[in-house]
């Protein structure tokens, strides 16, 4: 038996909306520690890792580890039916191939029950090493979204360069070139407005912009985003979900032949 209750159905809805274009099907692994998901896009270029800790839920019960394979577009269809302030309760047991989503309005006057068919998904999970990165940049998530969208109108790829003074995003295309340079900014009223650059060694990597633009769909989930880079390694783009976990996106770099 699995049962978990979230104060805001809207949170899960936003999470699924932010990842469902990259991965259409995924298996949620449920255990005493929470709900996890790891899935690659069909081209095996990017990966989504979602972690929702059990202590971030209002109620969480998983008698034993349990896998729930879901079509994320179908899941999104159901989650869209939740009211803005509804609570969400998820229920499933191994006896039937269904997960139930219960949406309850704040005054308890409306209770909606949606049952989603579970599916068997064969997927390969990758072991992601817990590596030290050469450079870590934290910046407002809206700023990162603006940068990748702006550069996406110029070129297909972005060259990211981190030095101790700044982080540069550069793109070029048929119409010309663009470079956006962000300096470290620590003296802000709100901590989420900071741009923090931690550099062990300078890095310079090139990535396909369309994936980064896709990752930035998670902008509404967190005020700030953390980008971790090491030479010739996939970049990590992390959105922390307050009090419950994170959604991380990994993207393999372009490699010089």
């Amino acid at each position: 038996m699995f049962e978990a209750q979230m104060a805001q159905a809207a949170l899960l809805k936003q999470i699924i909306e932010s990842i469902r274009e990259l991965i259409t099907e995924a298996t949620f692994e449920v255990s005493g520690t929470g709900m996890m998901l790891q899935a690659m896009d069909s081209s095996h270029v990017s990966l989504v890792a979602l972690n929702l800790r059990s202590d971030g839920f209002q109620l969480f019960r998983a008698d034993r580890p349990f896998s729930m394979g879901m079509n994320l577009n179908h899941m999104a269809k159901m989650l869209k039916c939740a009211g803005k302030d509804d609570t969400l309760t998820m229920r499933a047991d191994e006896a039937n191939d269904l997960v139930t989503f219960l949406f309850e309005s704040p005054g308890n006057e409306r209770l909606a029950e949606f049952e989603l068919k579970l599916m068997d998904i064969t997927s390969e999970n990758l072991g992601i090493p817990d590596a030290e990165y050469s450079a870590t940049v934290s910046m407002p998530s809206a700023e990162f979204q603006r940068i990748v969208k702006d550069l996406g109108s110029i070129g297909d790829t972005v060259e990211i360069t981190v030095t101790k003074d700044d982080v540069r995003f550069a793109a070029s295309g048929d119409i010309g070139n663009a470079t956006i340079k962000c300096r470290q900014l620590l003296d802000t009223e709100k901590p989420e407005d900071r741009t923090l650059i931690e550099m062990v060694e300078p890095v310079n990597l090139t990535f396909a912009l369309r994936y980064l633009i896709n990752f930035s769909k998670a902008t509404s989930l967190a005020p700030s985003v953390t980008i971790k880079l090491s030479t010739e390694m996939p970049v990590v783009v992390e959105y922390k979900l307050s009090d419950i976990g994170y959604v991380r996106f990994y993207l393999a770099p372009k490699i010089e032949d």
Partner: peptide
């Protein structure tokens, strides 16, 4: 000319 890397080249099977 740069080619797109695949994740399997960087991360092993779990």
């Amino acid at each position: 000319k740069a080619t797109q890397g695949r994740l399997e080249s960087f991360f092993g099977p779990s």
